[in-house]
Amino acid sequence: MDPRQAPPYVPLRGHPLTDDEFREREASTAWAPRLEYAWDAGIAISRFLEGLGQGAIYGVRCRRCGRTVTPPRAFCELDFKPMDEWVKLPETGTINTFSICYVTWDMKPLRVPQIPAVIEIDGTSPRVGFLHLVGGVRGRTVDQIRRQVRVGMPVRAVWKPPAKREGAITDILYFAPVRKRA
């Protein structure tokens, strides 16, 4: 359906929930779990994270099926073979899909929305995506953002300054739309 035919989007109403609103007055047992983990990233993801710390996106290529994927993995999950041909990928890609989100995970309204997206990094095989955020977009309403962000649109990584990188996926701040391919 042509989106111009649909009724206009209305902003979400409401305010952050208070403790009282969360809890009923009936007897209940509260427990604050202390669940703490430190996951071993492993061979493939460790190298990927180190690469991000240095401002590079790495992928791996399967010698059997020829797919190039990122984030890298130690084995091709389709061929069930080790995957160890490393490639440095460009920092550009294409938006596969995205959403414009106006609520935080703990149910606080957002006036400036977050835009999670699947980014297909250039040089990788089809249907190999990378979950990140789209940013560098002006405007707050659905209509304003839809005018700037589209499925199939080229984007480029915007990085944290080198001194602030820590070898994490958040070393890329977001992917920003690019008007023209370099």
């Binding site: 071993d40 061979i43 493939a44 130690a74 084995f75 069930f80």
Partner: peptide
């Protein structure tokens, strides 16, 4: 401790050994 491998990489190694032991593929 097993800092070198992720649980997925350990699982892949175990599965590869098991399938080979059985003479089957995934």
């Amino acid at each position: 401790l097993s800092p070198r491998q992720s649980y997925r990489e350990m699982g892949f190694e175990a599965a590869t050994r098991a399938y080979d032991d059985a003479g089957v593929t995934h």
